[in-house]
Structure formats: C-alpha cells, structure tokens
C-alpha cells in the first residue's frame, strides 16, 4: 500500500514548571499511526499511564490491522457506526483503559493514575481520529483549521450545552477537570471520527500543554506557515516555552502528500488502458526486432 504521508514528526518538552514529563507519544509513518497521551497521577504514575496507553494501543491496533481481524474478535462489542478499522482503534483504547484501570486498582503506587489519548490513523482512503480527555487533534485543510476531537472536560460539555462560551471555558478554574480518561472507569468509549483524506491535509495531535497557551487561530497560522512538520513541532514547543510552559507539551504533526482524486475518471481509465496497450506493443516490437 502506497503511503500518502509526506512527512511526520513528534516532539515533547517537560516545560518550565514541572519536574517530570508525563506525556508520551508515538509516530509510525509506515502504518500511518500516531498517538499522543497526557498522563496524570502522582509520583511516576502519570508517566506510566501514558506510556502504557501509547504502547498498548499501538500493539493491539497493529495486531488486528495486520491480521485483518474480524470485528467479533475485538475487545468488547463493535460500534456499528464505525468502519472495521475504526473499531480496531476504539477497541485498542478500551483494552488499554482496562489494563491501566487494573494496574491502578492493584498497585497502591498507581492509585488514581490515568491518561488522555489522541490517536490518528492515516490510510489512502480513510482518516480516523480518536480521543479521550483533553488532548486534541486538529486538521488544517485548504488553510482552514478544524478540530477532529472532542474534549472530555466539564467546561467543554458546558460549552456544547450552550451554557458557557469558549472564552469563559478557557478562563474557568474547572478547565482541567476531565469527565473521561483512561484508567478511572472499567468501561470507556473514545470519541471516534472518520473522514476522507484530501490532498495536502495537515494534522496536529497535541497535549493541553500546547492548547492552554496557543489558540486555535494561532495553531492554524503556524501550520500554514511551516512546510516542515519537524520545524513546526519545534515552533510549537518554543511558543509554549515563551508563554511560561506550566505543563508538559507534546506535539505530533503529520503532513499528507498530493492525493490523486479522480481514480474513477473514465477518460483517465481509457488513457491508462491506451498507455498499457502502447507499452505492450513496444515490448512486442522490441521482441520481434531482436
């Protein structure tokens, strides 16, 4: 399968106020699979939770993807609104949640640990995003920014209900209180979205260390202005640092290449058929000549 990913990069920074970096991330351009996780819980627990989430989600997703696993074989029931691969991701997050939940319950050092996740899967004909908590996924398409994740926080839910504005939410002391994470409950549903890829789409996955300090508009401007995803990640980290970086900041950016859209164009089909015929004739002539 030809990859449609042009370039991708990931970067994390502990910031200026925290001693530990509890964020984790993974980038895999070969399978087109990207994860950012923001851990919480004292001592080393947050770090452990985010690491376990990233590792387990990668592992189970790839196992099911490579073996083309039937949906009945997945962990817990499949979601009928999702594609098979969408269910691989939903299921891999549920499984990671169960493991983290059990680790937290069994080991006193891990009591109360949890993590957010933001997942992006890129395939030639499908883009899937999934998230739990307040780590976000942005898409910049044709210069416009769109969130492909839904925050699971009290303030985000209040904004959705129309009882709070975005500005009020950003100022609220409750803005870091999550309503969902991996680790706190036995059952978990991730927010999953599926869309068609488009040429030169750009994606950003990030922890709230970035979005607390950099607005959606600024993210859009910075993505549009930078053609190198590695430089973009560095620009984001630098921005967070100049604004105080009170939290760990993690950014993964993924740039897609030009995607040929009109695969089913009948004239193109005829064109390629003609080209095939020509090369065959050429080969035949060569053969004949020799």
């Amino acid at each position: 399968m030809k990859s449609i990913i042009a370039k991708a990069a990931g970067l994390t920074d502990v910031g200026l106020k925290r001693e530990l970096n509890e964020d984790s991330f993974s980038t895999d351009t070969k399978t087109g699979f990207f994860v950012v996780a923001d851990g919480m819980g004292g001592h080393l627990a947050g770090e452990v939770a985010s690491r376990v989430a990233v590792d387990l989600i990668n592992k189970s997703y790839k196992k099911w993807f490579d073996s083309d696993a039937p949906e009945e074989d997945l962990f817990e029931y499949p979601d009928p609104s999702l594609s098979k691969i969408g269910n691989y991701i939903q299921s891999s997050i549920r499984l990671a949640n169960k493991v983290i939940h059990e680790m937290a319950a069994e080991n006193t050092d891990y009591n109360g640990m949890g993590t957010t996740v933001a997942v992006l899967a890129v395939m030639p004909d499908l883009i899937i995003t999934a998230n739990v908590g307040d780590s976000r996924i942005y898409m910049v398409r044709n210069g416009e920014i769109e969130r492909l994740s839904k925050d699971h926080s009290i303030v985000a839910e209040q904004v959705e209900m129309g009882i709070m504005t975005d500005e009020e939410a950003n100022q609220s002391p409750l803005r870091h209180v999550l309503t969902r994470n991996l680790g706190s409950a036995i059952h978990l549903e991730a927010e999953v979205f599926e869309i068609e890829p488009s040429s030169n789409d750009r994606f950003v996955l990030c922890s709230d260390g970035l979005t607390d300090l950099v607005s959606d508009d600024e993210i859009q401007q910075m993505v549009v202005a930078e053609d190198d995803p590695e430089a973009l990640c560095q620009n984001f980290i630098d921005k967070a640092l100049t604004r105080g970086a009170h939290d760990n900041t993690t950014v993964v950016s993924v740039y897609l290449s030009d995607i040929e859209k009109s695969k089913s164009d009948p004239f193109k089909k005829m064109g390629s058929l003609l080209a095939d015929m020509l090369t065959t004739t050429q080969k035949a002539t060569k053969l004949f000549k020799s």
């Binding site: 919480m40 949890g114 002391p173 209180v177 999550l178 309503t179 680790g183 706190s184 709230d208 607390d212």
Partner: peptide, 13 residues
C-alpha cells in the same frame, strides 16, 4: 494560585 492549579484531574464518575 488555587484556580491556576494546572494539575489535570478526573471528575468522580
């Protein structure tokens, strides 16, 4: 300082 607690918390279910 109190409202600026940037520690992420999970709401009791």
């Amino acid at each position: 300082e109190q409202s600026g607690i940037d520690e992420t918390m999970i709401l009791d279910t």
